[in-house]
Design a protein around this nucleic acid. Structure first.
Lengths: 226, 226
DNA sequence: TGATATAATTTTGTATACATAATACATAGA
DNA sequence: TCTATGTATTATGTATACAAAATTATATCA
């Protein structure tokens, strides 16, 4: 293959996928707020496309649970309740534990190196206190672990669950009092995987989620009071 | 509300959902075979609707992973490889374990009664050797457990993963030599939940999946040889 | 004034139309 | 015979059209 003629496939991304990604991001980041209606013509005008791609994107959002359909009324952004968040975290806790356990068995030495580097990068990012860099480093680190499981389905599910909480990803990252704890947790996870100690890795991963859950739930309670 | 005007909501089910359910079932049962193309006009004619609902249904199937999209070529039924099945089962094993553990904590006495009955029904079904009745009893039993977790997201994910293997659900049910084992496994799961023994329940649930996996993998190898 | 019926508007659900990319086929040339 | 080019066909991607339901506004009557 001639490198010269390699073209970015994303240029051919159908409109429905562009719309899907756009709406998805808007919902996950909170630009589109829970309860807000997704009206087709309105969105179509706003995004400069026809209703067709909008509708197809909504179908995917529907299946993903990010919007709920009301018959003959259309789609609206799904509410995030404390319960639904806890449900997500409960599942994620189990799947993150599974991920690190599988990673203990299957991670290659090379991947371990990458993981170590990601761990260090995270620490550096935290020390420099740039929230968005920290967030990225955090995602990268966890990505390496699920990829190391070699289980694509698991990868897809974990990523999806993580994204469900995208709105709250800054909550525990912003809290500087927790920074040392975060670094320590990541180190513990890395070391247990490096030592191929499933039991310890599982414990560490669960603890990591538990602590995130605490931050997020605390934040939600604050939001409710406000 | 006047009972007289209660109408089965399914009568108002949009065509896209009818099509979605139809295609979904066709894929999961194997009527639509892996690799088969889903051509819009063809399906539209066959189902007596326009392309629009077909396309919207395909979008959902796409997100569910039952079909894969090839740019400017359309959808085709996703291939099921041994690897992808193992991946699904690996995740399901963890989530089934989570389910029974949560059920240990949260199941009500009433639900326990229902679960006991489902267990007995399953045994009766097995003794009568009607495969489709057995399959239904099996689904019912597992449904009760995930419902008892009170975690809707978990419920949705487990159901989805279970359906991914719908094509193979008869494999381990048909094998009469395994019938006693199946009954025993269900009993073990029930008793450990009734005794609220998480550790034991988790072990039983995992074993249950492991045995199913063995049957299915064996079957796949037979299919390959044929 | 207030309640109710009716008309107008908006919005979804579905069908169709049109443009373009992909594919298949056929034909011409080496 | 094989390749290449051009054309016809098919299928997707997107836009638009139309019908029915839901909502809102308006008007009528007690």
């Amino acid at each position: 293959m001639d490198e010269q003629f390699q073209v970015d496939m994303d240029e051919f991304l159908p409109l429905r996928d562009v719309v899907f990604n756009t709406l998805r991001k808007a919902i996950l980041t909170g630009t589109l707020k829970p309860g807000e209606r997704l009206m087709e013509v309105h969105l179509a005008n706003k995004l400069g496309v026809s209703r067709t791609p909008i509708r197809e994107a909504i179908r995917k959002l529907e299946l993903e649970g990010l919007v709920i359909m009301i018959p003959r009324r259309g789609a609206e952004v799904a509410q995030i309740t404390e319960k639904s968040l806890k449900d997500v975290l409960e599942v994620r806790r189990a799947l993150d534990a599974l991920s690190v356990e599988l990673a203990c068995d299957r991670i290659t030495e090379e991947e371990l190196g990458t993981l170590k580097k990601a761990c260090d990068d995270f620490e550096t990012a935290v020390r420099e206190k740039d929230v968005s860099v920290i967030a990225k480093a955090d995602v990268a680190l966890h990505d390496i672990i699920v990829k190391a499981t070699g289980n694509q389905r698991l990868q897809q599910l974990v990523n999806n669950l993580a994204e469900q909480m995208y709105r709250y990803r800054f909550v525990y990252i912003k809290d500087e009092s927790q920074h040392d704890k975060l670094i320590a947790e990541h180190k513990e996870i890395f070391e247990s995987i490096a030592g191929r100690d499933k039991e310890r890795a599982s414990r560490a991963a669960k603890l990591h989620i538990d602590n995130q859950e605490k931050s997020i739930i605390r934040q939600i309670h604050l939001e409710i009071k406000r």
